[in-house]
């Protein structure tokens, strides 16, 4: 029972108080690039949730049962990134089969999930914080949901912003970063609700 509570705690913390994007700044590149339309960001967000959850579990297993017993933990970067890359390849094939339109819309961003820092970052945080398997699952899922929440909110705001007049030089990346900053401020309001050690 307390195990369950710990997992839920990690999950909520990852979504709200320790949002992977707004407090750890991970996954910014695709966040800035793919947040123009709600539809695209929904697809990308869903892909990230799926990939994050599965890779954090897979990487946990690799770390615990292959790297740690063999004392090869310094190879974790290579192993994690290979697991992630292989997994993304599979997701890419699946999306290509299921929806041609989504595939066309996500275009360059799908392979870029491999180099999405959020995915690798979650695996690395999980090792540093010494999570159990269940907690790693909760952290992966929570971080994915948190990232999706942030990019969806951003896409919603940016769709409305099309008609707004933005000062010269701030268009695109600049104004998006300012909105992200305000969002980060708002998310700070969740502080203290749950804590992540």
């Amino acid at each position: 029972m307390s195990e369950m509570a710990a997992v839920l705690g990690v999950l909520f913390a990852a979504v709200f108080t320790n949002n992977i994007l707004l407090t750890n700044y991970l996954g910014m590149c695709s966040f800035l690039g793919a947040s123009r339309e709600v539809k695209t960001s929904l697809g990308l967000g869903a892909a990230v949730v799926f990939v994050l959850t599965c890779t954090s579990v897979l990487n946990w297993l690799c770390y615990r049962y292959i790297l740690a017993p063999l004392d090869l933990t310094y190879l974790r970067f290579i192993v994690f990134i290979v697991v992630i890359a292989a997994f993304v390849q599979v997701v890419e094939m699946i999306i290509e089969r299921i929806s041609e339109r989504l595939y066309a819309a996500l275009g360059i961003f799908l392979p870029l999930i491999t180099v999405n820092c959020a995915i690798l970052g979650v695996s690395l945080f999980m090792v540093i914080r010494e999570y159990t398997l269940a907690e790693a699952f909760g952290y992966g899922l929570g971080s994915g949901i948190g990232w999706m929440l942030a990019i969806l909110a951003m896409a919603g705001i940016r769709e409305k912003m099309v008609r707004a007049k933005v000062p010269v030089g701030l268009e695109g990346a600049g104004i998006t970063l300012i909105i992200a900053g305000i969002m980060a401020l708002a998310f700070m309001g969740f502080n203290g609700m749950v804590t992540l050690n």
């Binding site: 701030l170 970063l177 900053g181």
Partner: peptide, 27 residues
């Protein structure tokens, strides 16, 4: 903290793009 980083970065981009690189390369 986190928001400060976002604001600083945005400010930096704004200054560089708006003043130094003239706004022909936007978007």
């Amino acid at each position: 903290m986190a928001p400060g980083a976002f604001f600083m970065m945005a400010l930096f981009i704004w200054i560089v793009k708006g003043l130094i690189i003239k706004p022909d390369a936007d978007g």
